[in-house]
Design a protein around this nucleic acid. Structure first.
Lengths: 109, 109
DNA sequence: AATTCTCATCGTATATTTACGATTGAATCG
DNA sequence: CGATTCAATCGTAAATATACGATGAGAATT
């Protein structure tokens, strides 16, 4: 995309947007769903589950790691991924806060 | 970005990703927050609130309209925007479902 | 009819995203 | 040591996103 003018928004707005961006791809949703459901969280398993090349899966994992949602643990010769509970709770709270708002106003009357 | 291979993912995974993508920019978060908080939802008000050009705001509004989160009501010479409660509830349910999952497994032990 | 107001759209420059093959790095196995 | 395995990274092509000035469309006002 182009350059997002992050500096003109609040830290919180930027954080919400970043967390949402991490969820803004079906492959990453699939990765998260898999990690929530299965015990196995080895990278190779994800490559089998997802119909994407290994390099692409690795790239998606990197994004999820960068935002903090996942962390990987090297367990040679494999790498085990799991959800970072702290960030997961943060995301849960942030989205929960947004959606808890009741839509009171009937706009445009 | 590149081409997302949407056809290899489930409809639900794609829908979640699309809704997340709508939230994946601080300007759109700011727009939604404003619409949740204020009564006024006229486009011009948003242009004043956001430190972005009118064309840019209009573009963000269009994206939120496309995904269904907002709808606009022409009220000459203004356009009044409001949150589409149906889609809002859908998003609330979808994200709620994801985050309600308990993280049981202590991965990589 | 001309002006003004509000907002959408066009055109465009630039940056980022997605995807994949190829390669590299690290560690185990034979 | 050489071969193999697993995963990250590199390099790259193509598509998409962001931002903004300029222009266009529609309606009310002067």
């Amino acid at each position: 995309m182009g350059v997002t003018k992050t500096q003109v928004f609040t830290d919180k707005q930027n954080r919400i947007a970043d967390l949402a961006k991490a969820l803004a791809h079906p492959a990453r949703i699939a990765i998260i769903q898999h990690l929530l459901k299965e015990k196995s969280c080895v990278c190779g398993d994800l490559v089998e589950v997802l119909p994407l090349a290994q390099a692409t899966v690795s790239q998606h994992l990197k994004e999820l790691k960068n935002i903090g949602i996942l962390h990987g643990e090297i367990n040679p010769p494999r790498v085990c991924y799991c959800i970072n509970e702290t960030v997961w709770q943060e995301a849960k709270a942030i989205f929960g806060e947004i959606f808890e708002t009741e839509i009171t106003q009937q706009c445009c009357n």
